[in-house]
Design a protein around this nucleic acid. Sequence first.
DNA 1: ACTGCGTCTGTGACGATGTCACGGTCGGTT
DNA 2: AACCGACCGTGACATCGTCACAGACGCAGT
Lengths: 218, 218
Amino acid sequence: MTWTDHFPELKKLPEPSQSMVERAGRVVSLPAGAVVFGPGQPPQNYLLLINGTVRVHQLSEAGREIVLYRVTAGESCAMTTACLIGDEVYQAEGVAETPIEAVALPKAAFDEAISKSPEFRRFVFAALSSRMTNLFKLIEEVAFSRIDIRLAQRLLDLAGDSDRVPMTHQQLASELGTAREVISRQLTEFQRRGWVATSRGALTIVDAAALRQLINAR
Amino acid sequence: MTWTDHFPELKKLPEPSQSMVERAGRVVSLPAGAVVFGPGQPPQNYLLLINGTVRVHQLSEAGREIVLYRVTAGESCAMTTACLIGDEVYQAEGVAETPIEAVALPKAAFDEAISKSPEFRRFVFAALSSRMTNLFKLIEEVAFSRIDIRLAQRLLDLAGDSDRVPMTHQQLASELGTAREVISRQLTEFQRRGWVATSRGALTIVDAAALRQLINAR
DNA sequence: ACTGCGTCTGTGACGATGTCACGGTCGGTT
DNA sequence: AACCGACCGTGACATCGTCACAGACGCAGT
């Protein structure tokens, strides 16, 4: 068993592409909280995530931040791909949210794989274009959506299957690119309506249906 | 002389790539105001702009809009590229701002050129990654920048070498993804300070230095 | 248990931006 | 001249961001 088992699309590569990619990649591990990449650095490797999640966020000079997207197991990092191809430096920061395992494919091997394997190329650029689509959606939300709706969406998303969101108000504010006070007020209101229950450093979704209804209204 | 003369990067392609690309592309013309592509459509062709500019903007359900970027002569459209590669439909709208001439390369020929010519590939993906970089910048501005600063930047940008911006307040609002009233108030203030002179459907920049200073302050 | 101490949360005041509802002005057409 | 649609100005109010500050909570050390 090799690391390509984690990436169904790569596992289907015809030989000799697959073994080429397998041999060139090194598996690396990082602890939760590690900075995977940061603004100003040029990327050295193409990254494929095997385990864990990486949060990619933009930082403003004023200290505010907004989450651009998350990279989850089985995905590659769009910003790394774009910078690698365009020979640019990172603009955003990537932070491991959990302990992670990833495959690092050196730039030279990446270039070679891109040029020699149409399937690998499709895998890389399909991921890139899908992330680009997400970014357009994000722009629309930041520019035009009300904060209560965005918060409701994000809470449901972060809770996943559970009903628990183990984050502080400040962290939620950073998710949406807004200020802590704004989140505090919205959550107070959500709680008043019986939609969530708050506690220090976490909250519980009580009435998910109501949150979904808020999102779909107007 | 062929249309590849308009694209220095393509002109340098080694044979037989260049003649392949040249033969497959058709030159098309559209009048100013024409909708080049719109939400929900799948792209049919890779587009290279020879003359004119195309404005690509996102529309919200509420009728607001924001300009994502412009495609100018010698460039390709990032959204078209991304959708073509990822087999997705357009999310935004592209409108010809001037009469345009463009080269349309059918999807099949595009795929073939991508796979057979490393140089063409580099040209395509460098453009894509550079546009992606711009989008991150846009997100930061929308999320964190004050509207007066964004307006000043955009005015200087739209004026170019001249000092004239022939747009209505509504059009400027659509550039920045805000409301007309907001622009009206900002321009009233700019005029009060003697930085611009307004007239119906256009404005003139009187003190570009002051606008630049506003941008660089804080 | 008591005491600090840093982090997290709540809140009022106010500025900046978005929304709504008007009314006035300008240019071109009939 | 009269009309009409597009463009612009403005007040009132809602929402969101910023600032300042206070209280509450959890943890460490005693």
